[in-house]
């Protein structure tokens, strides 16, 4: 019985970690689906969001809610600026060039953060202060439950936004066929900027939730989660919103179970191993559509 309770607790931990991954993966998958590029700097936007929260909370002494809003504003502005300066000039360049630029942007953000804040980890006050709940002997952390709830809420809102609004439909059109969308009078550049704005705002929220459960931030906070998030998006099938959600949660559960039962050191190796296996058998991901190349 005791083992069962630990298992359930690990499962809930995994679900909460997975929800954060899912939030980040939503941003990745939207940008990939619409701009057809891998935004390597997505993880580092999360880091910037976390630093913003930490600074606003400690220096300015604002309330946590104000800090969250500030972080969303900063990240959105940053995401759109990066898109304008670094990615927009390469709209028709080879995918390799865009990918390398994105890696450059990621390193740029990391090294700027390193120069400003130093390599020492900085403490972040948790935005969420909640008691844990006990249900049938299982200790459920309040933060974990709130994270899961927020993620589900955001996913529903995002799906509604894309299905029901004009901007959302424009995004779908651009992701299906950029040229045809342009002919129909859709402003492709504005749509792509909008995608970056939404993706970065989601990254900001994910960043806040991520550091709420970890409690500190350093310049490399975003790097590995950023990569793992991409893994989540790929496992779920990149470009698909339910896929990102599914992939994120699967990844979170795998990671937390392997940390608990196999080895902390090997958890990352297992995550990437799963990615390679999934891609070998389903190159388009679990929920992705298979693309046929026409000659």
């Amino acid at each position: 019985m005791k083992e069962f309770i630990t298992f359930i607790q690990q499962l809930i931990n995994g679900l909460s970690l997975g929800s954060v991954y899912a939030l980040m993966a939503l941003g990745y998958t939207m940008v990939y689906g619409i701009a057809k590029m891998l935004n390597f700097a997505h993880g580092d936007i999360i880091m910037v969001g976390a630093y913003t929260v930490s600074i606003v909370c400690s220096i300015a002494g604002f309330s946590p809610m104000a800090a969250v809003l500030a972080s969303i504003v900063v990240c959105t502005a940053l995401g759109v600026t990066i898109e304008k300066i670094a990615y927009k000039p390469l709209r028709n360049a080879s995918p390799l060039a865009v990918l390398i630029t994105a890696i450059g942007v990621s390193y740029f953000l990391q090294s700027v953060a390193l120069l400003i804040f130093g390599s020492k980890a900085r403490k972040v006050q948790s935005v969420l202060n909640l008691e844990s709940v006990k249900i049938g002997g299982v200790d459920l952390s309040g933060v974990a439950l709130v994270i899961i709830f927020i993620t589900i809420l955001i996913m529903i809102l995002l799906t509604l936004f894309i299905k029901c609004t004009k901007v959302g439909k424009a995004m779908l059109a651009v992701s299906e066929d950029r040229g045809a969308a342009q002919l129909m009078g859709i402003n492709v550049n504005a749509t792509i900027s909008m995608t970056f704005a939404i993706g970065s705002a989601l990254a900001a929220i994910a960043g806040v939730l991520f550091v709420s459960s970890y409690g500190y931030v350093d310049p490399y906070t975003g790097a590995l989660p950023g990569i793992k998030t991409f893994v989540a998006a790929v496992i779920g099938g990149i470009g698909s919103i339910p896929g990102a959600m599914f992939g994120g949660i699967v990844l979170g559960i795998i990671e937390s179970l392997s940390k608990a039962y196999i080895s902390t050191d090997l958890a990352d190796a297992i995550v990437f191993g799963v990615l390679i296996v999934v891609l070998l058998f389903k190159p388009a991901g679990m929920l992705g559509k298979k693309k046929i190349t026409k000659v």
């Binding site: 000039p89 360049a93 060039a97 450059g104 942007v105 390193y107 740029f108 090294s111 700027v112």
Partner: peptide, 16 residues
């Protein structure tokens, strides 16, 4: 690392 990053971005922009 900052110089590497800026160099990567600039080289890609100027060549593509």
């Amino acid at each position: 690392m900052l110089i590497y990053a800026v160099a990567l971005i600039l080289i890609m922009l100027f060549s593509s």
